[in-house]
């Protein structure tokens, strides 16, 4: 993944917003409770083997089993369950007011990203990248187009499955601007391990600017109208799966490429986005992400890959 999720502290223990913080608190509490119970069990075991006879006879009684083995776990686990569910209930709360709404659909093996207007209408199509304003909750509407995926940006919130036929909500919030790595956290076949994305948090004004730039680019004709890359892209049939607003390319199977030149990554969060990696991805994506649904266009000579990459790189 381009935005690493390894290193220390692990992102789960390094929350960047209130929702992720709840998950961290829960994780530490469960860890502490687990440690406590393990300690009690070890002490009891030690006493049962090495302790004086009068304690041994007490420990061997039926009462100890009822209290320590049934009542104690039942009470503790019930309390933890209720507390945990209450603590994290706000993570999955839907729209309550004017929150920013983004629909993220898990696809084999990438993330379709659609920014929604106040009435739920799609105002911008993108992929594998989620831009959000800092310091406010953003409501993600999670869907799946095929199998069960799971959406996870450990710095910003909990993990939430994307289930076919269902619409589930997950709230994320970043309290400081920056980039946060995300992954699909539920094995979804083939190149699941290469299915990632980047969440980018901007200050509110910068985020609005980012959105406005995309809209301005989309309203204008696509960049480079006379470039050979555009003709080759269309002639090679790329438009069967990919859409570039303002051209005949209107395929909806693969990621929308209207703004591909402004993305940070290629191949769903796995490669940096530059002219060279774009050529390599188009030319032989199967050697980079084996099993992904884009065929390798190794029949295209490098001159054509170069031209397509040149044109696509300008689609901001």
């Amino acid at each position: 993944m381009l935005e690493p999720l390894w290193g220390w502290p692990p992102p789960v223990l390094d929350p960047a917003g209130p929702y992720a913080e709840k998950v961290t608190v829960l994780a530490w509490a469960l860890f502490a409770m687990g440690l406590l119970v393990t300690g009690v069990v070890i002490v009891a075991l030690w006493v049962a083997i090495k302790g004086p006879p009068w304690i041994k006879s007490k420990l061997g009684g039926e009462k100890v089993v009822w209290i320590g083995g049934v009542a104690f776990p039942a009470v503790v686990l019930t309390i933890l369950l209720v507390w945990g569910l209450t603590l994290t209930a706000s993570l999955t709360q839907g729209i309550t007011g004017k929150e920013t709404r983004i629909r993220v659909t898990g696809e084999m093996w990438w993330f379709r990203v659609q920014y929604l207007g106040p009435n739920g209408e799609v105002i911008l199509n993108d992929a594998n990248e989620i831009h959000l304003p800092v310091g406010e909750p953003v409501v993600l509407e999670l869907r799946s187009a095929d199998v069960i995926h799971s959406f996870w940006v450990p710095h910003l919130s909990g993990k939430k499955d994307m289930i076919p036929g269902r619409k589930l909500f997950l709230r994320v919030q970043a309290d400081k601007a920056g980039r946060y790595g995300g992954v699909c956290a539920e094995y979804c076949g083939g190149p699941h391990a290469l299915m990632g994305f980047v969440a980018v948090a901007h200050e509110r004004a910068a985020w609005e600017g980012w959105l406005a730039e995309r809209h301005a680019a989309q309203a204008a004709a696509p960049a480079g109208p006379a470039m050979p890359g555009r003709r080759i892209f269309l002639e090679s049939g790329c438009g069967a799966c990919h859409r570039v607003a303002g051209t005949e390319a209107n395929g909806l199977i693969g990621p929308d490429l209207t703004h591909v030149g402004s993305r940070l990554t290629l191949g769903a969060g796995i490669l940096p986005n530059n002219h060279g990696t774009l050529m390599g991805w188009i030319g032989d994506s199967q050697s980079i992400k084996p099993g992904n649904r884009m065929p390798s266009y190794s029949m295209l000579p490098a001159e054509k890959l170069d031209a397509i990459a040149d044109w696509l790189g300008r689609q901001k």
Binding site: P272, G276, G280, G283, D284, S287, I288, A302
Partner: peptide, 22 residues
Amino acid sequence: ETVGCGACHEIPGLDWPKGRTA
């Protein structure tokens, strides 16, 4: 790794990607 040379070239010492375009 940062610029993604591996997208096109197989490079000893780089486990992934091992592109074959170049």
